[in-house]
Design a protein around this nucleic acid. Structure first.
Lengths: 146, 146
DNA sequence: CTCGCTCCCATTGACGCCCATGTGGTCCCA
DNA sequence: TGGGACCACATGGGCGTCAATGGGAGCGAG
């Protein structure tokens, strides 16, 4: 399996580190991803993390815009300036910075969520809530009649 | 990675100096940028800093405009007249001049913001505000319906 | 002579690297 | 089929290194 799937919750240690789940690490290795880049999700209170190609994909969406437009300027501010580098230590752990904590509400535990080509960091309860909300919304769409 | 990405906030010391983040310094080195040129951003209360090719690129975009138009005139005034040379000291710090302070509102701390081909100096809170505004604007664009 | 800038050195605190421990799960074999 | 050994991975902490910061001294311009 070379895509990010499933989810797992790990604890943050006294130094603010958390282990990336082993399945995710092996996906990173298979995909030869050396550098990790993370940024705030546009919709959910979660940090999305992926390799350089994830960044490029988003930039390509930007590329269609007028380079001088205010919109392109704003998106560049979000994507280029709003992101952070994430480095794994030799054991495959990453630092949970204040930047990540304040945006996600993460305190002591992190839920890693696979999103196929990238994965996300969530505050555990927030993930459960969002999942629940998504399920309800889907049911409403599938069976509009009460 | 040889582009300016991510962001970091550093303190200004008693002499008015501030350290350029190490990742940005290494990008400068990789790109062989010796001279730094800074000027006021067209949209945000921030100072943009880059090498000579950044200046050239903007001049090229200016070239696309009618050379006698008011817009071209104004931008030239900003870029050529509003710009300053920035020199790094032997430890990679730069001076925060009154010019920079008055335009950005910077007082004690500087947020360095990567913009791919160049980086910017922001007053920390102003950066957070602008980022928030950009995110809201994006959401409004993505989901125009209420 | 004074002010301001640059170069140089010291300190400190954060982060990356390394090794140790524990624990849950799985496989093997009697 | 039950028990035990083994293994993979999450977790905890020591330690060295490097970047950020603070201050001293030299130098040149006004």
């Amino acid at each position: 399996m070379n895509r990010f799937l499933s989810h797992a919750t790990n604890r943050i240690d006294a130094k603010g580190r958390v282990s990336v789940p082993a399945p995710f690490r092996s996906v990173l290795q298979e995909r030869q991803i050396q550098e990790l880049y993370g940024f705030q999700d546009f919709v959910f209170p979660a940090i999305s993390i992926g390799g350089p190609e994830l960044l490029e994909r988003i930039e390509r969406q930007l590329g269609g815009l007028d380079g001088f437009s205010e919109e392109a300027h704003q998106m560049s501010l979000l994507v280029h300036g709003g992101g952070v580098f994430m480095k794994l230590d030799s054991e495959g752990r990453l630092m949970v910075t204040d930047f990540i904590r304040s945006f996600t509400g993460i305190t002591t535990e992190v839920t890693f969520v696979g999103r196929a080509d990238y994965f996300q960091l969530w505050q555990p309860q927030a993930f459960l809530n969002a999942q629940q909300a998504a399920r309800l919304a889907h049911q409403r769409r599938s069976a509009p009649a009460n």
